[in-house]
């Protein structure tokens, strides 16, 4: 993937910043990758190369690690991320049907991002909301008891939000305390 010049600078600045606040121990590799991804949204190759340099570990190892763990993404995610839970409870009551419904409406497969970068779709092993099965996590909001009809509703809402071209203004899941 080609990076624009300012994207490149942003990545370099971000890595420098994160490296500064860590001990540069190999033990910090996973926390560092987590921080980078939290800021940039994914792990650009450039970032991985710089981290490898900073921690004095082979870049091949950083790559091996980033491709091993589920959490890490090597490509930018879509603007809206949908995670469909396929834990036991969700699977038993049609989790795969929910996943397929999203695939049909987004016109992508699980693990992919739509070409317009609006959507990405993932399956997750369990989000721990088994009593609300089947569950999908739509931009950090947990949706319970999802049906194909509800998927259409969710997609409609997301499309509308996109059309209004509004900035991301999701209610924060962990809002302030009373």
């Amino acid at each position: 993937m080609q990076l624009l010049k300012d994207e490149k600078e942003q990545i370099l600045a971000c890595v420098a910043e994160v490296l500064k606040s860590n001990s540069k121990n190999r033990e910090d590799l996973i926390p560092i990758l987590q921080k980078i991804q939290a800021i940039i949204g994914y792990l650009p190759e450039l970032a991985m190369a710089k981290i490898a340099e900073g921690l004095h570990v082979p870049a091949a190892d950083v790559y091996g690690l980033a491709t091993f763990y589920n959490q890490f993404r090597l490509n930018p995610p879509g603007k809206h991320q949908v995670k469909v839970c396929l834990g036991t409870a969700c699977y038993m009551v049609g989790g795969t049907i929910v996943l397929e419904s999203f695939e049909r409406r987004m016109e992508i497969r699980e693990g992919e991002t739509s070409p317009d970068r609006l959507y990405s779709l993932e399956r997750v092993a369990c989000v721990g909301c088994c009593t609300m099965a089947p569950v999908a996590v739509v931009d950090e909001v947990v949706e319970g008891k999802v049906t194909p009809t509800r998927v259409d509703g969710i997609m409609l809402a997301l499309n509308e939000a996109n059309n209004q071209n509004a900035e991301k203004q999701k209610p924060e899941q962990d809002g302030g305390k009373a």
Partner: peptide, 24 residues
């Protein structure tokens, strides 16, 4: 320490490897 999403890291030795910055 936040696990990075690998079921196998529930296994003790894999968990320790991942804490040491290695593949789990």
């Amino acid at each position: 320490f936040q696990g990075a999403g690998a079921f196998v890291c529930g296994e003790a030795t894999a968990l320790v490897n991942s804490m040491e910055g290695k593949i789990g």
